[in-house]
Design a protein around this nucleic acid. Structure first.
Lengths: 258, 258
DNA sequence: CGTTCTATTGAAAGACCTCAACCAGGGTGG
DNA sequence: CCACCCTGGTTGAGGTCTTTCAATAGAACG
């Protein structure tokens, strides 16, 4: 009992912070959640706990650890669709439909069934917000893969992960635990591990980040956002004015911060 | 009156076929739909009808034409997240939340509000299936951008579009109307227009497709699927039924085609 | 019929990948 | 306690794929 083993409530703290950030949870929601947590189960690292094509449970809540939603091709190429962090919810549209991707534990994982949203409007609201945010990040992933350079992609995922950890109170001052290998990161951003390594090296040398012992720290990340396409993915019109300067709409013009 | 102007019921026929494929619609659903169609509105080609960051309507149904969900970066780079075809539904999580992408009409578009799913269980089922399928295709888009080569990406989107047109009865023998420019296609698959052109040229010369006058025909597309990573990326069946040949569709085994 | 958009093609540059070797740390077994 | 192995990170060299730049042709449009 020297403090090495945190209490259960500590382990799931991030998940609760995150859920509460989605929508302030009332007493009913909290007790439903606690009941669900009491039936939590664990998945050991690197284990696939849902396979594409199999029947999936309705709602699953990540209590602790990282998971990854993936697709794998016959020839072995693998794509990580997105990462799932504490407080993230995994929804299935209908009970009789098949999973459209695999779910793999990145770390040892603690998960439970998501409580029935009907028990509390605040819980239903949290679920709704969760879906909404996930959709937005998914669109971000598409844009990242489709239109960002390698450097930008890496910076952009890392910023997304920081953002999400902040939501769960799991980051302080741009620093959070990142339990993925460079190979996994590569599968997430559509690059090879070798090239991810090079990108990270140059980012390190540019003083943009520190990554050591499973902890990453992003330096000057508010500047990073501006430079590396994270915040840039916002609105603007499609066909209106902005076809003037750039004839086809995607040169890599680096707008040097004035 | 030489037949150039089809009746309204013809125009929206594809959308109805598609909806009915999602879930067989009962009489109540059909009359709710007809009521919604009566209040249809049009959007002219190349017009943005929803902007990221603005308040979005709850459910919108595409009755005719193509639309595109996009994100645009400050420097003009543009990514088409996905295409929206007749019978596709555009959902918003909650009325008070902001759109997370732009919606632009690719062609002249006929849309209407989606009827309240509470009026008919069959309609609700159709909505659910729609969300489910869209999610699967979205994961497909991520995998496409992240892990396919240029040739494969182009073949893969075209196969997806064919598949979706078939669902709406809008394709015959691998042939359907494709009202996009090569530039749009490039924005969808994360390539430059120039390279899309080259890929199309070589596909033409390989006898894989014919694209002329807004109509495309994919030749030997069942072979194409095997060769270009289409089938590999997704569970082909939505429900339990046809899981005969492929056990789960993604072992990591390296099976080099002999 | 000019104007504008779209498709097409060539040449050269650049980004990213592949292959391959080497290193560092951590666990394991002798 | 140390040699060994295995995984994951690092680095170099060379090749391939995709982009960029640029110029031309065809089609659509008013």
């Amino acid at each position: 009992m020297n403090g090495a083993a945190p209490a259960a409530s500590d382990i799931i703290h991030g998940a609760f912070v995150r859920l509460n950030a989605l929508a302030p949870l009332d007493q009913t929601a909290m007790s439903a959640l606690n009941a669900a947590v009491a039936r939590a189960r664990t998945v050991s690292a690197r284990t696939e706990f849902q396979t594409e094509g199999e029947v999936a449970p309705r709602v699953t809540l990540i209590l602790n650890g990282w998971a990854a939603r993936t697709r794998v091709m016959e020839d072995g190429r693998r794509q990580i669709i997105n990462f799932l962090l504490p407080g993230d919810l995994i929804f299935t549209q209908a009970a009789d439909q098949l999973a459209v991707a695999n779910l793999t534990a990145v770390t040892d994982l603690v998960i439970c069934d998501g409580p029935d949203p009907d028990v509390s409007p605040s819980l239903a609201a949290a679920y709704t917000t969760s879906r909404y945010i996930e959709k937005s990040f998914l669109y971000g992933q598409v844009s990242r893969l489709g239109r960002l350079t390698a450097q930008e992609r890496v910076a952009d995922v890392l910023l997304e992960l920081l953002e999400r950890h902040e939501m769960a109170g799991l980051a302080q001052a741009g620093k959070f635990a990142i339990p993925v290998t460079q190979e996994m990161l590569a599968d997430a951003v559509g690059l090879t591990p070798v090239h991810v390594n090079r990108v990270l090296q140059s980012a390190r040398q540019a003083g943009m980040l520190t990554w050591k012992g499973g902890m990453i720290e992003l330096h000057g990340w508010s500047t990073l956002r501006r430079k590396c396409g994270h915040q840039r993915l916002r609105a603007s019109s499609f066909y209106r004015g902005d076809r003037s300067s750039h004839s086809n709409g995607h040169e890599r013009a680096e707008s040097p911060t004035p």
